[in-house]
Amino acid sequence: MLVVEDETDKRDAVREEIRAFFEGGVEIEECATFGQAARSLSRSQFDLVVTDLLLPRLDGQAPIDVSEELIEQFAESELNRSATVVAVSRFEEVVAQRRGAFTRAGILLIGYSKDDAWRSCLRVCMQRVASRTVYDFVIVCALELERTAFEAVSREDFTVGGYVRFAGLDGREVSLGGLEGICVLQPQMGLVDAGIIASRALSVFSPRLICMTGVCGGFAARAPIGTLVVSDFTWEHQAGKQLPNSFEIRSYQESMGNETRIVLSQLIEEDRCLLRLASKRHEVAVPSVEAVLGPSVSGSAVIASEKYAARIAEQHGKVAAVDMEVFGIYRAAALHGSPVVCFAAKTVVDHADEAKGATPQQPGAILSARFAVEAIRRLLPEG
């Protein structure tokens, strides 16, 4: 929790209200100037921030209205965009003047007075914080087989927990060192379910990272059976205009962030065939083919036609994989209000042709799960 207030009596009152609500079991950081608050928000993540509007910029300066700077600070804070923020001011004219701007920014602005009205409003916000379930990362799977594959991740710092239900989401908790995560199963395969489930998980759990694992189809020239494909960027292969004798593709691409791409590219280059993820003798053997960081496409239908797959491959000279969900995950992350790391890693188990289904899916799903856990550990090193 962060309390930003330069008046001692008001700061003490807010602090004691927070401690009373959480029965003392809470860490509270205090700042008396806007400068101190800006530094705290840039280096630490808070569940709740209670701030005044009139603050000195630096020690020894007179308080001034820093409303616009506060709104900008919270909008630009990657660590605290999901924090519950409450602004409390004893100056009624400032509250009236600034209420609209704070409301548009998603910040509750209340007046501070000697009665208990402000306390009631603050308790409502603290109740929201207390009931929030937050995970560091979310993994989305389209099939139960893909989620179960995480049981085969052989890392001492990784554990698979029990099944949970939140906001209509079918989850299974996992942990990785000091990180807490949840593996969410889609009700059905496909782009629509992927986008909806990812959007809901992002809103409900406020994760720092969301990813997708599992199996997919591939294009033989670029991704042999057993290839782990990490989707650099992706699009919907069926988006466009159907003409009488042809189809006019109108693709809208979504990509992983550049920093994410660098980290995953280096992770692959360290061990291109992912031999470090190989199974022990008693475990299900996983593929050992060179991994690929490249384009993938998504669509709503299962592709089991060599002719149709060839038409899709013509959309991009280096497209490596085809599936039914990844574009939905990337699109949900792109439209989410807060920055979130996003990637997808799926193993090719067919070439989207008439032989679809001939290769077992479990080994590929396990390889994907093992890679994703390594990637999460690398992308979220702080815990």
Rank of each mutant, 00 (worst) to 15 (best):
I210Y: 10
A83R: 06
K241P: 03
I196T: 12
F34S: 06
E68H: 14
K307T: 12
Q242H: 07
P63I: 12
V263A: 04
G217W: 05
I329D: 01
A194Y: 01
P360E: 14
S338D: 12
N258Q: 13
S89F: 00
V286D: 06
A301K: 14
T260I: 00
T234L: 12
G214M: 05
S231V: 06
G171N: 05
R377K: 12
F34M: 13
A321K: 00
E173P: 07
Q73L: 15
G106V: 08
F158I: 01
H316Y: 13
G168F: 03
L293R: 08
E68V: 08
A301G: 10
R250F: 03
S368H: 03
K241M: 11
A334I: 05
E382I: 11
A142H: 11
I366A: 09
R147E: 00
L209P: 05
A75K: 15
E354C: 10
E93S: 14
E7V: 11
L191D: 06
L380F: 09
H282N: 14
S231G: 12
A334L: 07
L274S: 10
L191C: 01
A13Q: 09
E72A: 14
T213M: 05
G364V: 11
S251V: 07
D170T: 01
D193K: 05
S296W: 00
G35S: 12
A365I: 07
V326Y: 00
I139G: 07
A352E: 10
D65S: 13
A313L: 06
D52M: 11
V134A: 03
E7P: 01
Q361G: 04
E151Q: 09
V286T: 15
A198E: 03
I262E: 02
R261T: 00
G218L: 00
G226E: 10
R165D: 14
A365Y: 08
R98H: 12
A304N: 11
L143N: 03
P244V: 13
G111T: 02
C342H: 02
R155H: 04
I28Q: 07
G294K: 06
V50E: 04
F74I: 13
T103R: 14
D6I: 04
V204N: 01
S89T: 06
V319Q: 10
G171R: 05
S175Q: 12
V94T: 06
F137L: 08
R272Q: 08
I18V: 15
R155Q: 00
E270L: 14
Q127F: 05
V297Q: 02
A194W: 01
F21R: 05
G24L: 08
E290S: 11
A194P: 02
V286E: 03
D353F: 06
V289K: 07
S265L: 08
G100R: 05
